[in-house]
Amino acid sequence: MKRLIIALLFFASLLFVWEALVRAGVWSAVLLPSPAIVARYLADAALDGSLWDASLVTLRRLFAGYLTGIVLGLPLGLLTARFRFLRDTLGLVALGLQTLPSVCWVPLALLWFGQSETAMFFVVLMGTVWSMIIATENGVRNVPPIYARAALTMGSKGLHTWLRVLLPASLPFVVSGMKQGWAFAWRSLMAAEIYVTVLGGFGLGHLLHYGRELNAMEQVIGVMVVIIAIGLLADKALFSPWERFLHKRWGTAS
């Protein structure tokens, strides 16, 4: 409760400083609209539905690409950890492509897939899958060998050892890989939406882009606030349960 109050007070004072800066007239009102104007934009956009539609379009793209990235990356990471030849081939590719900022996939995706949903999907997938492969492989290879030995003496072998020992034992790495993949996917999707107009639907990136074109600073800032809020919410909703579990079982610091 106390933490909540402190947080609320903090954000209230941020708004206050913002309002004070606007009133002081340091910057032109076109460049820095007051919190009230931004709030009005958000309220209007929420009422006419454009904000919800854009958020929905963006989140749909994000989840499609992100979940596919995890579903592909997790088993590929396990296989990479298991087979040396995959580590020397796919592992290197993953390591290399993971260092490539995923925005760099946008031009290629456009040429390959045109201004389509597929291009968006591809960019998000590329942002997720390599981190997931690297994190899973890294996690499995960091599992103390004694776990597998102990499991072996209890009759575990083959697939059972992989699913019931190596995978759960590498969970701390896997979850941080999922978080990193999420961050990459989110960033690359926003970049792609700002660059590329896809006729299939207008996402938050497009709203941001049109805000700039129309010189509507309240729209730019308002959409940024929404993007931040979605990022925070996803972090809490998607990863907090996992992290709480890890913290409880492993006893790591929260």
Partner: peptide
């Protein structure tokens, strides 16, 4: 090969942290 009729205990407990 390892078998269920011969169980082993190690110096480190080798308990699995993801299980209670």
């Amino acid at each position: 090969a390892p078998g269920r009729e011969r169980m082993m205990m190690f110096q480190e407990s080798a308990l699995f942290p993801w299980l209670d």
